[in-house]
Design a protein around this nucleic acid. Structure first.
Lengths: 204, 204
DNA sequence: AGTGCCACTATCCGTAAGGATAGAACGTGC
DNA sequence: GCACGTTCTATCCTTACGGATAGTGGCACT
């Protein structure tokens, strides 16, 4: 079975490859960035499975994933990432990924997942979509009321209070109030800090 | 030689451990988060070397590193991270870390680095401090003058114009000008957007 | 020597943001 | 019924921000 793994973290790449190849029947090729991965797919393909790291030069979010999926010689392409966000996994599967491999997965499960995906199945870690969602959010999100979260979302999009007010169909003074109380809760002293803190926490 | 590696990415942990233990004389213990790492150090220490992942529950940036360094039974503590920022490496060494292991390191070098650090030396990847870093930045950064980049950095830290002015030892009107021209260049219409765009691009 | 580009300072103005405070409608729970 | 938290509206005030415009000095290109 031929597998291509692309990741700019050489340490991860080296050790994962050593581990996977120890399973016996899997041959692994590697690439340090997306461009190289494309070239290798064209030159040495087809591969039974391609694993692409999300945070790798050339990926540009999910656009690299989509590009790879549209290639002839990569029958199955999966995301391989340290980011364990559920919305990301959903987006990846939406654009046709063969699976979503978070780096929090046990190594043994990786081998099984690779075999599974190479067979044409879509893979998601057990207990990822089924697990309760309300609790996968940061402690941060839990301190905020629903309104405050909506307002925070507006802040992370760089919107002005007035815009947020329009979007939520509320008056501007109301937004200002939510913004202020929200600052206290997340520990920000202005909107930019609030936006960055929210992003940092992986919200939205 | 006893080594503790803490990382919440089980896949990385499993494979790295398998690789390191294959070297023969290194015994590896693992932890999935910082709290567990602390408990293990107290219970099973001392360790010749402790590797801590930066983005792990309980780490809180470098504060976990500092805590670990101050512990009796962890003689040498190093950072282990996917973030290849030079300033981060400097900060880590400043607070007394035994080394900085980016995940972009080849796996073979890891073994050597572990032995090196366990001997009491400080480790930094070759060509990390010496190599010129200025030009590997995004197209985004290249459109900006040095000043504008400094100001943008201030924005990504949620600072007010006045604060940035103080930090750079410039007047506030000057900062405002840079801020304005910088908006045009990156396509932002306010400071929050500028900060998010910069973060998105991976700057700072 | 002239032409740009960059960095800096400056003033003016309108608007946005941030803080304080007050009051009211609505649900839940006791 | 009453207390409580959430959401909403509102006013007042100060400061910060964003845009426009004008001018100076330095440096590199040609």
């Amino acid at each position: 079975m031929k597998v291509l793994i692309a990741d700019d973290h050489e340490l991860v790449l080296d050790t994962v490859v050593a581990f996977v190849e120890a399973a016996g029947d899997i041959t692994v090729t590697t690439a340090p960035d997306f461009g190289t991965a494309q070239r290798i797919i064209d030159a040495d393909g087809p591969f039974d499975l391609v694993l692409l790291d999300l945070n790798m030069p050339g990926m540009n979010g999910l656009s690299g994933l989509e590009t790879a999926i549209s290639m002839d010689r990569a029958s199955h392409v999966a995301l391989f990432t340290g980011d364990t966000s559920r919305s990301l996994a959903e987006k990846a599967l939406d654009v046709g990924a063969a699976g979503f491999i978070p780096k929090t997965l046990p190594a043994k499960s990786l081998i099984n997942a690779i075999r599974f995906m190479a067979m044409g199945e879509q893979y998601l870690p057990a207990g990822f979509m089924t697990a309760s969602q309300p609790e996968d959010h940061h402690p941060l999100a839990q301190m905020l009321t629903q309104r405050e979260q909506q307002v925070l979302k507006g802040l992370t999009e760089g919107k002005a209070n007035k815009e947020i007010a329009r979007d939520l169909d509320l008056s501007e003074p109301t937004i200002k109030l939510h913004v202020k109380t929200l600052y206290r809760k997340v520990g920000a002293s202005n909107r930019t800090q609030a936006a960055l803190i929210a992003r940092e926490a992986g919200l939205f």
